[in-house]
Nucleic acid binder design. Structure first.
Lengths: 191, 191
DNA sequence: GTAATTTATTACCATAGGTTCAGTTTTAAA
DNA sequence: TTTAAAACTGAACCTATGGTAATAAATTAC
C-alpha cells in the first residue's frame, strides 16, 4: 500500500524480502498547508517523493526575498540536491503548498537499498537523467527568455500547477517580481 | 588505456570480458579547436566524456545569439540532456574550444552495458546526482545574482576555465552581453 | 459575518543591463 | 610580415524590469 512502490512496480517486480526492506526505509508523512518539511540550515539528507498535494523548494535571502527552485506534484521528487550530494548545509526550505502526503527516504538507508536491490538503482538513475533534462531546459529558459516568455512557458509546461500556486510564487520561480508578473498578466489576458 | 576506465576503476575492478565490452562501446575521438561534435537539429544520442581539453554546449537563436549551457574539462561529462532523455531533436551544439580528446558512448549501447554490468550503473547514478546539484546551484545563481555577482561566482567556481574561455562565451554562460561583462571587468579590476 | 492578514493590482520613478555603433586590441590566416 | 577576422572595450542612449508605495481583492481567522 505504498504509492512509490506502486509507481516503481509498473516496471519491475519486487521480491517479498525487498518489499519489507523498502517499507522499512520509506517513511510516510502527511503535511498540512504551509508546513515545512525541510528547513534551511539543516544537514538532513533525504529524498522526498510526493504522493499527493504540491510542494515547493525555495531559497530565502536575509532581506526576506524568496526564490523558488522547484515545484513538485504527484509522483515527482523534491529535495535539496546540494545538501544531498555535497557536505554543504541546506540553504533551501521545502514547504507544502497544500495538504499533502509525501514519502521520505533517508539517504543512507537508500544507499543501502541500492546495494541490495539494483533495480532501484536503475529506477533512480533514470529519474536523475530525466531531472537533468528538466533542469537543462529550465536553465535555457532563464538565459534566453523575457519575463513574459518565461511566464508563457510556465503556463504551458506546468498547466497542472497553475491553479494551485499563488502568483507571487510563480514570479519567484521565474525570477521576476510579483508586480512584473501582474503587469504581464494584464497584457496577456486583455487580448 | 582508456581514461574513462581509469577514472572509473578508482572505485571498482572490472572483469576482463566487461572491459572488452566497454572498449567496444567507448569510441575515442580527437577534436581540433572549433570542431563541432554534436550539431543542432540532430537526433544523435550520446554521452560525451572529456579526457582533455575544453568543450562547451550552447544554444544559438535564429538571429545568431548564443547562450552557453555548459563548459566541460577533464573528467566532466557533456551532452544534450534533452535529446538524450526525451524524443526532442537537438537544439544545442557542442563544440571543442581547444584541441581535445573525448570519449563517446552511444546511448543504446550504454543502456546495454548498464544491464550486464551494474557497477557502471552505480557510477552513472552518482554522476547524475552530482550533476543535479551543480544544475540546482546554477539555477539559483541565475535567479538571485546580479551580473557582477554571477561573474564573481563564475571566477570562483570555474577558476580552471577562466584562462581558456573567451569573455564573450563567459558572458553567454552568465546570460549577459559581452559589453556588460566588459563593463563589469573594468569595475572589478580597477580596484 | 467581521476583522485581520495575505495576495494581487496599479502607478510612477529608478536603474541594471541591453542596443547600437565606433574604435582598439588580439588572434588567425595567407 | 601583412592583412583580415575575431574579440574586446568604450560611450551614449534606451528599455525591460525592479523598487516603492498605495489600493483593492481575496483568504483566513476569530
Amino acid at each position: 500500500m505504498n504509492e512509490l512502490l506502486d509507481y516503481f512496480k509498473k516496471n519491475v517486480s519486487i521480491p517479498a524480502e525487498i518489499e519489507n526492506k523498502l517499507n522499512e526505509i520509506i517513511v510516510e508523512k502527511k503535511l498540512v498547508k504551509g508546513e515545512i518539511i525541510l528547513a534551511d540550515n539543516s544537514l538532513k539528507k533525504e529524498h522526498i517523493f510526493v504522493v499527493s498535494g504540491c510542494l515547493r523548494s525555495f531559497y530565502k535571502t536575509e532581506e526576506g526575498k524568496e526564490y523558488t527552485i522547484q515545484f513538485a506534484i504527484k509522483n515527482w521528487w523534491i529535495s535539496d540536491y546540494i545538501t544531498l550530494y555535497t557536505n554543504a548545509k541546506s540553504i533551501i526550505t521545502i514547504e507544502s503548498l497544500t495538504h499533502s502526503k509525501v514519502l521520505i527516504l533517508d539517504k543512507n538507508k537508500t544507499d543501502e537499498l541500492y546495494k541490495v536491490y539494483p533495480p532501484f538503482e536503475v529506477f533512480q538513475r533514470k529519474n536523475f537523467e530525466k531531472r537533468t533534462a528538466t533542469l537543462q531546459k529550465r536553465i535555457l529558459g532563464l538565459l534566453t527568455l523575457s519575463a513574459a516568455e518565461k511566464y508563457n512557458q510556465f503556463i504551458n509546461d506546468y498547466a497542472d500547477f497553475e491553479k494551485i500556486i499563488p502568483n507571487y510564487q510563480i514570479a519567484s520561480f521565474l525570477g521576476i517580481t510579483p508586480q512584473s508578473l501582474s503587469r504581464i498578466r494584464k497584457e496577456k489576458f486583455k487580448k
